[in-house]
């Protein structure tokens, strides 16, 4: 780590004030940032500890939930309202990392975690457009079993590693941002960027902005939802493919559906095509498979990850079949 100074902010205004005094990084649970600082991939001169900011998990008037940016992953996963109204979010969180890490990691930090691409991490020897725009990408011709099959570019094929964000994408979650120019909200699905030619720019956040909360809008259909993660180890491993889904079936027909994929793209991948194709269709294995085919039609595989295309299709179909079984 390069030397840095440390300050603790007790509220968002204080954090923004600290930031205004010079470039800094906000520090949450540290589970990703501290690691990246040790690798000197992140080199902030100042850290602003924002773990004292709101960690509340509160019901909104219309039945949604607002989760404070500093709420720990475990606290969300175990929360009664999350478990009953948004079970896919609980399941996504407990599928991620390890219990120790979930006890540390904050909501904001989870949303902002960076890719686990091994070439991104090899700061000393590998080329990476995410670290150094224009440098090139060693993953494209290298080991890329874990890499993206959707929305990648010739500059970057990294994936977003979060499980929680996949559930948030399926839930139409909204990110609350606060900056020196005021507050704004961004849908989670629009929050992360595809790599394009600037994979170093991962989100739509402006310099100094802070994630203060994430809102889950009311979504009665989410009662029937789940998260399935496919990985090499049985636990404590990043997803090869994951699926978060919620479905409402009325008289054997798909009334509404939400699907998001993890492990396949530079961002949590909301499967809008599959969702659109399914609405109004019979809730059958054939429809589910067809929707999955449609979503993955544009998939582009690398040398080692072609299996992910079929794996994603199968997992989508299996998850939807499971959920429709429950609804029946």
């Amino acid at each position: 780590m390069i030397p840095f100074s440390y300050a603790r902010a007790n509220d968002a205004a204080a954090a923004l004030q600290f930031f205004a005094n010079g470039a800094a990084k906000y520090l949450g649970g540290g589970t990703n940032l501290v690691d990246l600082m040790r690798e000197t991939i992140e080199r902030p001169a100042r850290l602003i500890d924002v773990t004292s900011l709101s960690d509340s998990i509160e019901e909104t008037a219309d039945g949604g939930i607002v989760i404070g940016g500093a709420a720990r992953n475990t606290a969300i996963a175990e929360h009664r309202l999350i478990r009953t109204r948004f079970p896919l979010l609980s399941r996504a969180i407990v599928a991620g990392a390890s219990p120790q890490i979930r006890n540390m990691a904050t909501t904001a930090g989870n949303v902002l975690q960076r890719t686990r691409c091994a070439y991104f991490y090899d700061n000393d020897a590998a080329r990476c457009n995410k670290r150094e725009p224009g440098q090139g990408c060693d993953a494209i011709e290298g080991f890329n079993r874990y890499h993206a099959i959707l929305g990648a570019s010739s500059a970057c094929i990294a994936t977003h590693p979060s499980d929680m964000c996949v559930a948030l994408a399926a839930l139409d979650a909204v990110v609350y941002l606060q900056g020196t120019e005021g507050k704004r909200t961004v849908p989670l699905s629009d929050f992360h960027r595809l790599p394009g030619d600037r994979p170093d720019i991962e989100t739509v956040m402006r310099p100094g902005e802070l994630i203060t909360a994430v809102e889950l809008p009311p979504k009665p259909m989410a009662v029937n939802s789940t998260y399935r993660k496919v990985r090499d180890r049985a636990s404590y491993a990043f997803a090869l493919v994951s699926v978060a889904a919620a479905i409402k079936i009325e008289a054997g027909v798909v009334g509404d559906v939400r699907i998001a994929l993890g492990g396949v793209a530079h961002k949590p991948w909301r499967a809008m095509k599959a969702e659109a194709a399914l609405r109004g269709q019979p809730a059958t294995d054939v429809s589910f498979r067809a929707a999955a085919e449609l979503e993955l039609a544009d998939a582009k595989a690398q040398a080692h990850n072609a299996f992910k295309v079929e794996l994603a299709k199968r997992t989508i179909a299996a998850v939807l079949t499971d959920l429709s079984g429950d609804a029946a």
């Binding site: 540290g30 500890d49 006890n103 540390m104």
Partner: peptide, 13 residues
Amino acid sequence: GQRVLSCLTLAVQ
């Protein structure tokens, strides 16, 4: 009382 990883926790926190 909560289990955490001390390697990713800064002492100052």
